[in-house]
Amino acid sequence: MAITGGYGFLGWHTACRLRALYKSEVVRLGRQDFADPARLASALADVDAVIHIAGVNRAPDNEAEAVEKGNVVLATALIDALRALERSVDVVYANSVQAELDNPYGRGKARASELLKAATSELDGQFADLLLPNLFGEHGRPGYNSFVATFAHEVAAGRVPTVTGDRDIPLLHAQDAAAALIAGLGSDTRVTVDGEPLAISEVLAFFQETHELYRERGEVPDISTKMRRNLFNTYRAAVFPDMWPISPEVHADKRGELFETVRAHGGAGMTFMSTTLPGEKRGEHYHLHKVERFFVVKGEAEIELRRLLHEEVVTFHLSGDKPSFIDMPALWVHNIRNVGDTDLVTMFWADQLLDMKNPDQFPETIASKVSE
């Protein structure tokens, strides 16, 4: 299977989901592949399905013609590569609800859909056309992917974005969009994927609430609904790794010391403790949605994190001499290792009760290398 736009926002989320739930290693195609027809055809040589996400929704100086033609050019390049295979390949198209509107982006997406459907049918493949609403999620590009990404980064930086023309916008998390695209594989259909309507001002208000509670104090806001949790994870991606670690105030007297480990304002949660022997390691997994906190109470710990399908590793050193915690961002592989000479005592908190049938925990090592 291949994903065009595989290194972009939705492409990355889709590749992550396929890796987590289906153990599928996909061919990820980017700009360089589309710039060379022979290279694109070669990359598709062994695939039986393509999720076509690559698209153009912005252009230099907001040139309308470039946006409209750009999506058609990408679709045409993919079609030429598929025809060169001389066999059937199923295609799932990440279309947009804008395709039903008369604007440059919508016209370009609509025309690309028509071309892809005709070519896939000609090659005896199945074509699924999914019209997606406004997408948001972890690691969206501010000023490009959505206003949600822009607001998250602006608020995280301590700025206050301006809301103009406040209205409800149907929003869909990128993992839900990825799930819909994957479900479309092997089908011949046209589906409009619904988002959850949310006012622009509500999104801003949530990020401002989160900034005050989370960025400034390490407190978890109310994430009792799926939308609030998804917005929270979007904000967490915007502040990682800059806000970590956090060391709460320690209250000490003749009896000993006391400090808060978690203050959550709504939703489920569970807490557990562990001791880890010197040199031993825990973790080596990632989550799609779960919020997880590592709080080092005693001993010396090294925490490593690597964004899924990337190679750069972020490392933190935490010590029980100054009790501190770090929250693991969604879609980042993480572990914790005892680098001291005594037992490491760690408190863990998660925002959801453990469900053994659906634990939202996927094994992977920090050391795994991903070729770009």
Rank of each mutant, 00 (worst) to 15 (best):
Y93P: 03
A94P: 02
A94T: 08
A94N: 02
S96L: 06
D102Q: 11
D102S: 13
Y105C: 11
G106L: 11
G106H: 11
R107S: 06
G108A: 10
K109G: 09
K109R: 12
A110R: 15
A112V: 11
S113H: 14
S113V: 12
S113Y: 11
E114K: 14
L115G: 09
L116I: 13
A119P: 05
S121C: 09
E122I: 00
L123V: 01
D124R: 13
D124W: 07
D124P: 02
F127C: 07
F127S: 04
L131D: 12
L131E: 13
L132G: 06
L135Y: 02
F136E: 05
F136K: 04
G137M: 05
G137C: 06
G143F: 06
G143N: 09
Y144C: 10
Y144A: 13
N145M: 06
S146C: 05
S146A: 06
F147G: 01
V148C: 02
V148L: 03
V148N: 00
A149V: 05
T150D: 10
T150A: 08
E154Y: 03
V155W: 00
V155P: 00
A157Q: 07
G158A: 09
G158M: 09
V160Y: 08
P161M: 09
P161V: 09
P161S: 07
T162C: 05
V163D: 03
R167W: 00
D168H: 09
I169L: 01
L171K: 00
H173I: 08
A177P: 06
A177Y: 03
A180C: 01
A183G: 05
A183R: 07
D188G: 08
T189P: 00
T189W: 00
V191R: 13
V191F: 03
V193T: 03
V193W: 04
D194F: 04
D194I: 04
D194Q: 13
D194A: 15
G195D: 01
G195R: 00
P197E: 03
P197Y: 01
P197C: 02
P197T: 01
I200H: 00
L204T: 07
L204E: 06
L204Y: 05
A205P: 04
F206P: 07
F207S: 05
F207P: 04
Q208S: 12
T210S: 12
E212W: 14
L213V: 10
R215C: 14
R215H: 15
R217Q: 15
V220K: 12
P221Q: 13
P221I: 14
D222T: 13
I223Q: 13
S224L: 10
S224V: 11
T225I: 09
T225W: 08
T225H: 07
M227E: 10
R229T: 12
N230A: 14
